[in-house]
């Protein structure tokens, strides 16, 4: 096997794993642009993975599986929106709890299905990877060239300014978080319906955490998320591929170690390029200074 083939192979597989990363990252970027951090990506993804698998298995349509994944992702995110926007609880704690909840719930529901292969999977190089890239462009255009985009970004930068202009900050944040959760659900669904068409407990294996870091790495820009997702997808794949030469444990750590490295670099040297939405993570209460 030639080197070129090997590299091409790695890239193709990297794109396959990059797809859920991209969908998840786009959802997280969308929610964070409205000022809400959702650390529940891992939980929303695993729920999406399970419901996609179950729906696809029961109905025979993998497309319906992805739809179910989007719905469950949106519902899980709705919970996060309620706790963090309406109750104004700490977003980070709420998101972490959602991740734990999702992992636990999916494990519980999926007991009887453990290890089942999906009878009618989507091909891995299906419509989802190109659709993800298209979605990234669409979200970019939405953010920067539409009225809704200005509203969404303002809510994330300065909710007080948005409120003073008569915009319903809570509603915008709800919509953004729920839409973000739907994308995370689809990302999880892709894993169980296309990437590895089966159900295994914990099959997301930490991808959801990488997604959170990707939103930062891409500096909250949907277009940069494409490249970032491809890079991390490739890294993930390499961690399997290089096992012939290197013991698996350090390899499995690689994407996560790289995540920390990237965040450290961003924090140290990228102060200007990596500026987060100013109100990110902060609950909004009218009249509070």
């Amino acid at each position: 096997m030639g080197v070129v083939d090997w590299i091409l192979g790695v890239l193709v597989r990297g794109m396959a794993l990059g797809t859920p990363l991209l969908w998840g990252a786009l959802g997280e970027i969308y929610a964070e642009r409205a000022g809400v951090v959702n650390l529940g990506v891992e939980g929303m993804m695993i729920l999406g993975a399970f419901f996609a698998f179950a729906a696809a298995q029961l109905t025979g349509h993998p497309g319906l599986g992805l739809l179910a994944a989007a719905l469950i992702g949106g519902m899980a995110a709705l919970l996060h929106a309620f706790v963090s926007v309406t109750l104004r609880a700490n977003q980070f704690v709420s998101g972490l709890a959602l991740s734990m909840l999702g992992l636990g719930l999916a494990g519980l529901l999926g007991r009887g299905w453990e290890g089942f292969p999906l009878s009618n999977p989507l091909p891995e190089r299906s419509i989802l990877p190109p659709l993800g890239a298209l979605l990234a462009v669409a979200i970019w255009a939405l953010l920067y060239h539409t009225r809704w985009g200005i509203i969404l970004r303002t809510v994330g930068e300065s909710p007080a300014a948005a409120d003073a202009m008569g915009i319903d900050v809570a509603l915008v944040r709800y919509l953004a978080v729920v839409f973000g959760g739907m994308l995370a659900g689809v990302a999880g669904g892709f894993l169980s319906v296309a990437y590895r068409p089966s159900w295994t407990e914990g099959m997301t294996g930490g991808i959801g955490w990488i997604v959170v870091a990707l939103a930062i790495f891409a500096s909250w820009d949907p277009l940069r998320a494409i490249g970032a997702a491809l890079l991390f997808g490739t890294l993930f794949h390499l961690s399997f591929r290089l096992q012939a030469w290197i013991p698996p444990e350090p390899l499995q750590m690689m994407p996560f170690a790289f995540t920390i490295l990237v965040l450290a670099i961003a924090a140290r040297w990228g102060a200007r390029a990596w500026r987060a939405p100013e109100a990110l993570g902060l609950p909004y209460l009218r009249g509070e200074r």
Partner: peptide, 13 residues
């Protein structure tokens, strides 16, 4: 005002 947005974006809001 949203510091990172342009004048027009702030007004359009």
């Amino acid at each position: 005002l949203v510091r990172r947005h342009t004048v027009a974006e702030n007004v359009a809001l």
